[in-house]
Amino acid sequence: MISVESLSAGPLFGLPLPEMWFGLIFTLLATFLFLDGFDFGAGAIYGLLNTDREHEAVLAAVGPFWDGNEVWLVVFGGTLFAAFPAAYANLFSRHYLLMFGILGALILRGLAPEMYEQRHDERWQRAWSVAFVAGSVLAPFLLGVFAGNWLVGNEGSVSLIGVVVGFTLTLLTVVSGAAFLRLKAPLVLPERVSTYGQFAVVGYLVAVVGTLAILAVRLPGGLLTLLHPTIVVLVVISIGLTAGYIVAMRRGESLLALGAAAVLTYGLITVVGIIMYPAIDPATGATISETIVSTLPLNLMSIAAALLLPLVASYFVVLYSAFSGPISPEEAY
């Protein structure tokens, strides 16, 4: 049995736990942005589709998944709170109205499909369709604004970098969403969904370049920060993946395209993490080592995460295997 004394004495196995938690938190954020990202993207594409059957196909495709996907945001928030309480508190209270904008968008997006199913009259369904699209587009956009502000340490809610990162993230969700929808409803949804994805991925690349240009001006380290070898490699990989995504979508290899979108998402968040390190809240200059919780709770949290996250991963394997292959619009409850 491990004693409280030994758990308070030093980091578990002498591991660099603060850095690992920094990495974990960004991994959780990226997981959320990829998984719920394809739900958001599907919601944006929903707005570009016309028939009821197409709309229902989109709702059926995201139905079993979105709730589980969204929980990654809860886990991201919870772990940030648990590992870096001061960063959690300062960051969210500083971007007060923005946070509530994000939460409002998530409420709309989550509620809309549930409400849409309840009544079969046209006005009701049209209203909830609008809510679904608005929530699905606004959530990643505002999250991007938040991430942009966080990264450069902006005090206010609206900023150029925020808006550009917002567009970047929204386009990225459409990239994932198009691949996801081609995978889950290949027969119902029209070919042009694939075209939306291809446009979005090109737009994404342009937006990333724009983001990097602004960062080169805004960051204290300037261009030099961005010439970090890993960042350069990730940018090159992203360009390659963009091309790969387009080819995969044209050939109807939706799963490969979705994989490319996943790597793009994790790559983007890795770049964000590298730029920010070792700070966790650039606005106050607070670093990882200044804001990390004390050794005992950190060790306990590390044990909990090491035991629970593999379990969580297994739940997702079960869920996605149960719903592997296309999901027909008739599969509502």
Partner: peptide, 29 residues
């Protein structure tokens, strides 16, 4: 945060995840 953040984080990982993923199967599957 030291006492309060931990339980919230564990709630997300241990409970909410279990609920939200299996709910997909329970409702639609």
């Amino acid at each position: 945060g030291e006492l309060f953040g931990g339980p919230l984080a564990v709630e997300g990982m241990m409970a909410f995840m279990l609920e939200a993923t299996f709910l997909g199967i329970f409702v639609f599957g």
